[in-house]
Simulated scan of single mutants.
Amino acid sequence: MLFLALLLVSAGLAAAAPFAFPLANGFPNLNATTLQQVEKLAGGTLPNGALPSTLTPDGVQTLQLIAANELSEVAFFTQLLQNITSKVPGYHEGHHPYIIDTLTAVVAQEQVHVLSANGALANANQTTIQPCQYVFPVSTFESAIALAQTFTDVVLGVLPIAQSVFTADGGEEAGLVPIVGSIIGQEGEQNGYYRFLQKKVASSAPFLTGGAPQFAFSAISQFIVPGSCPNINVIGLTAFPALTLQSTPQAANSTLIFSVSGPLNAANATLVYITGQNLPVSVPIANVSSATNGSTTFAASFPFDSGFNRGLTIGALVAGAGKTFNNTAEVAAATLFGPALIEVD
């Protein structure tokens, strides 16, 4: 799977029951009174400025991806809050009133984010994204907060790309740039809190790790119950096959073990790391071994001391031996399996 190995491999966490919409308040379909209640809990309102009346195809895809991501976050944090307030075993650490108040605000804020993205799509007569059913493989408050930090790291890596898309044509979409910028700041506030709860340094690094839309879509897809989405296919992205990290990463030069489903030729593949705002780092793979279940494991060096960031590093297995890349978009275009989300603190 796509998660940090500590969540899926080492911890062996069980998946929760599928989460389905609508919420108790009717979300994603809110009347005016309920919207005001959500905005009050969120601490602020939807932007009331003019929205684009037209969108480029890239702009449509970007807003649809944002909406899909925010829907998954609404589902995750709603379920987390329910597990805490219902006193589900394993979630006792979240019973503090401050934590409950914070998560209550986050649930409302993510709802407003969905309404903002889908509202921009609707204003331009484009397809809005409807919710799926979701499964989140966490069973404790601790594992849930670790997962929240990881997927928020991914979000923070891809939202700046959305800003670039909205400025590319110089049209009406440019008005969305400050809105997305404010979401980046808001998600950063959230992530500092999730890191604090884990007793990590609140801000991981001076420059956060970048991403790519394909990696973000893959992150969303691995939460989704297959066949449960009314229209997520309209986004036009395909999730990569999983690249699973089998070993626990350390903040030092080391060797990591990965696995993929299916055969693999070491002479025609390269492991690429994306960390901070640095150029992607390519390393060869070795010790390729096939299992009877069809999976393949391999080893790759993890050159952390050569300038890797604290926090998130993205790993991707790409086609071709000895391949090098100038940016994350090039990595995503060549990816065979991934991303592996590697958290080091």
Rank of each mutant, 00 (worst) to 15 (best):
I235M: 03
I235R: 02
G236H: 04
L237V: 03
T238R: 11
T238P: 03
T238Y: 02
T238N: 11
A239W: 01
A239F: 02
A239V: 03
A239D: 09
F240E: 03
F240C: 01
F240Y: 15
P241I: 06
P241V: 07
A242Y: 09
L243D: 13
L243N: 12
L243A: 12
L243E: 10
T244F: 11
T244A: 15
L245I: 10
L245H: 10
L245G: 12
L245M: 14
Q246A: 15
S247A: 12
T248S: 15
P249H: 11
P249A: 10
Q250T: 12
Q250D: 07
Q250C: 05
A251P: 07
A251L: 13
A252G: 06
N253W: 12
N253L: 14
N253D: 15
S254P: 02
T255K: 07
T255A: 08
T255L: 04
L256H: 04
L256M: 12
I257S: 11
I257G: 07
I257P: 01
F258E: 10
S259W: 04
S259C: 05
S259E: 07
V260C: 05
V260H: 03
V260P: 07
V260S: 06
S261N: 01
S261Q: 01
G262E: 01
G262L: 01
G262I: 00
P263Y: 00
L264A: 05
N265M: 02
N265W: 00
N265G: 01
A266W: 00
N268F: 04
A269M: 09
A269S: 15
T270K: 06
L271M: 15
V272R: 06
V272C: 06
Y273N: 10
Y273A: 09
T275K: 13
T275Y: 11
T275V: 10
G276S: 14
G276K: 07
G276E: 08
G276W: 05
Q277A: 15
Q277Y: 09
Q277K: 14
Q277H: 13
Q277G: 15
